Simulated scan of single mutants.
Amino acid sequence: MSHLDHDMLADQAIERLVHLHSGRATAAERMAFNEWRGQSAAHENAAREAEALWGALPETRNAAQFVAPVRRSRRLLLAGAVAACVAVLAVVALPRPLAGVYADYATRVGERRSIELADGSRVWLNSGSALSVDFSTGERRLALHAGEALFEVAKDPQRPFIVRAGDTEVMAVGTRFDVDARGAQTRVDVTEGVVQVSKAASQPLRLSAGQRLSLDERTPEPAAVQPLDLDSASAWQRGKLIFNQRPLGDVLAELERYLPERILLTDDALRQHKVSGVFDLDDPDALLKTLERLQPVTVTRLPWLVLIRPAPRG
């Protein structure tokens, strides 16, 4: 199928789906849509893409009534739906910026920042992150409210260095480690030295260089300790993302933190495709271009959304 034919079917699928959710669709029109999608595998794929995209935009179902029932391109239809639910999407996107209101240090989406602390330690904040610092004569305590931070700790045996993320605490005396807090999940990577990881209602664990531990606030016990690829660990600090045979679903989740839009993969069959490559964080557009070059996908950027779908064959 040519690009033109694929886009034409995608246009038709979106147009029909918008009408079906408008509140004006009849039973006959719903049956007609089922018959339309059953005409061929290409029709069915276009219908599934449209349904996945529609479901990824919260509350856009009510926005359909604002879209005139005339044929338009997918981009215009979706832009109208997105515009109608900007307030809802803004609420979804706000937690990371809001954390910056009360934090001592914060980064915008796509921004990375290096900070030297009063004790000589250094912190690198990744995209969309927020950190507070509370040093006293007895301890050095920090709170990672959101995002990811790499810590290079100055030695001071009399004042332990403690980072809290959610219900997880990471303590080090002199070492280099990374804490990544995403909602209920926290990941700790150790690249130098030793840290002690404590979680409410579980025994403390010691992690050494080359080890990774993942924790979830919804489960009492942490996952098993995993080996850490030191060659690619914290590559974001150098402005790179390095993937070695990583599932496409994981890669997209990582890329999303550097983009203002959300990423939607319309075909779950692609989620386990392995990706190897180097991505340049200083050029967000290049992230998506590199992805298209590495994988059999087409990337479409819409307001608030990046749509990843299988590349047309032929």
Rank of each mutant, 00 (worst) to 15 (best):
Glu261Phe: 08
Pro296Thr: 09
Thr168Pro: 01
Ala28Trp: 13
Arg30Ala: 14
Val67Leu: 15
Glu44Pro: 10
Arg61Gln: 14
Pro160Asn: 13
Ala41Thr: 13
Gln65Asp: 08
Pro296Val: 06
Thr290Gly: 12
Arg164Glu: 15
His273Phe: 11
Pro97Phe: 15
Arg108Asn: 10
Leu125Phe: 13
Ser234Gly: 01
Leu288Thr: 00
Leu291Ala: 01
Asp268Val: 03
Val123Pro: 05
Asp231Pro: 02
Phe243Ile: 05
Leu4Ile: 00
Ala165Asn: 05
Pro157Gln: 10
Ala42Arg: 00
Ala184Glu: 11
Glu148Asn: 03
Arg159Val: 11
Pro260Met: 09
Met31Tyr: 11
Arg301Glu: 09
Asn244Ala: 12
Leu252Ile: 01
Arg212Val: 04
His6Gln: 08
Phe279Arg: 00
Ile162Gly: 03
Leu142Asn: 01
Ser114Asn: 07
Asp280Glu: 14
Asp11His: 14
Glu292Thr: 09
Val67Arg: 06
Leu89Met: 12
Leu264Glu: 03
His21Ala: 12
Pro296Met: 07
Leu94Val: 02
Leu302Trp: 11
Ala47Trp: 04
Val297Ile: 12
Gly183Tyr: 13
Ala223Gly: 13
Pro303Asp: 03
Ala79Lys: 15
Asp189Gln: 12
Ala130Val: 02
Thr219Val: 15
Ala28Phe: 06
Ala201Ile: 00
Leu252Trp: 06
Ser132Glu: 08
Arg159Cys: 14
Leu76Gly: 00
Val197Lys: 02
Ser234His: 03
Thr186Trp: 05
Pro220Lys: 01
Pro260Asn: 07
Glu169Asn: 09
Asp104Glu: 05
Ile115Phe: 08
Ala13Lys: 04
Pro227Tyr: 13
Leu294Ser: 06
Val153Tyr: 10
Ala172Ile: 02
Val197His: 06
Arg75Met: 07
Val86Ala: 06
Val70Arg: 15
Arg246Trp: 03
Leu259Arg: 11
Val225Thr: 05
Val188Leu: 09
Glu35Pro: 00
Pro303Ser: 03
Ser114Ala: 14
Val67Asp: 01
Phe243Thr: 02
Gly55Trp: 01
Arg37Trp: 08
Val88Tyr: 04
Ala41Phe: 04
Phe33Ile: 05
Leu77Asn: 11
Phe279Glu: 02
Ala143Ile: 07
Asp250Val: 08
Leu150Arg: 14
Ala27Ile: 07
Gln203Tyr: 10
Ala63Glu: 11
Ala46Lys: 07
Ala146Asn: 04
Ala223Arg: 08
Arg212Cys: 09
Ala84Asn: 09
Arg140Glu: 09
Ala50Val: 01
Arg262Lys: 11
Asn244Glu: 12
